[in-house]
């Protein structure tokens, strides 16, 4: 899959593209999770991230500062996840 030609800061996808591979890791819907950017402190729903990829891997960037927040790679036998750009992840969960 390719990203259309042309310069500019516009990502080809939003964070909904991450829902598939992340659903292999998380029991809850991660696209509505809120991540806090370690770089600028902004909070953003995963669905609103600027996402590049899908190959060689998905890169989700902060809508505020463009830092890398989330990276996901699906290899033939593993899912690799990097949340190094995120200081917290808040996932809505069923009431208990």
């Amino acid at each position: 899959m390719t990203i259309p030609d042309g310069p500019g800061p516009t990502a080809a996808y939003d964070g909904n593209l991450m829902a598939g591979p992340l659903s292999e890791l998380f029991a809850l819907d991660v696209s509505v999770a809120v991540v806090r950017c370690r770089g600028c402190g902004a909070n953003a729903e995963v669905a609103t991230l600027r996402v590049y990829g899908p190959d060689p891997g998905l890169v989700g960037r902060c809508p505020g500062c463009d830092d890398v927040l989330v990276r996901v790679v699906r290899t033939p036998d593993a899912v690799w996840l990097d949340l190094g750009g995120v200081s917290s992840l808040r996932v809505p969960a069923p009431k208990r």
Partner: peptide
């Protein structure tokens, strides 16, 4: 024959 563009971020100018 194409030259696909793969990027991990915005195009740097």
């Amino acid at each position: 024959g194409d030259f696909p563009v793969l990027s991990a971020g915005p195009t740097s100018n």
